[in-house]
Amino acid sequence: MNASEGLWSHLTGGALFWLTLTLVVYTIVDRLSLLARRNPLANPVLHSVWVIGTILVVSGTPYETYFDGAYFIHFLLGPATVALALPLYENRRVVLRSLVPIVAALAVGSAATIGSVIVCAAIFDLPAMITISSLPKSATSGVAMGISQSVGGDASLTAIIVVATGIAGAVMATPLLNFLRITDRRARGFALGLAAHGVGTARAFQVHPLTGTFAGVGMSLNGLLTAVLVPLAASLIGG
């Protein structure tokens, strides 16, 4: 083995390299997304995931090795959910004035999401493990993984489906909501946060602070309701 190969395997076996790579790739991709004027297709999460995923596959690095480094970032998902208290607090009056539509849209949206997953899984005859792991797909990663585990799902699979859902929601929200002629920023934000959690919320904050705040509200309330509804849905389809 020559010196450069030795150095490569030394670096790629440790946490420092993968943590740095994640931050560098994200920074570049986020910069490009800004240059693309935040076009929804230039979603920073989407492009970071495939770039880093390709590097892992090509270099033959196990995900566990990568995650040892990336865990420092992953851990902050919980604190970031807690931190949504700030935009919520700053906009509490606007949110309070919209309390009735919020509660109604939450109940209908959350149930419709879980119901549509069950219907979709039945149509495509998906294995039970995928169905169960997809039930909390609209809740934010940290929350959804916990829910999935508690109902016998595969938490890693849930994480992937959750992030993919977030990306899909963030990419399609603007054209879809324009097509549906929904102009109210509160409705747009709330729907995006409920359906596409933190990735959708990040997208909503790119568009407008009010949209972002309502996305944050939708995301946190749906995290709560999904935790209640998924065990019920799982026992229905399981038993």
């Binding site: 994640t22 931050l23 994200y26 986020d30 920073p44 999460v45 970071s48 995931v49 880093i52 995923g53 892992l56 995900y63 990568y66 995650f67 990336a70 865990y71 970032i73 992953h74 902050l76 998902l77 970031a80 990663s141 993984m145 890693s156 994480a159 992937i160 959750v162 992030v163 993919a164 977030g166 990306i167 933190g198 990735v199 919320t201 990040a202 997208r203």
Partner: peptide, 11 residues
Amino acid sequence: MALLFVPAGVG
């Protein structure tokens, strides 16, 4: 917040 979803997505 968006950055924080990258590690789980790479899974």
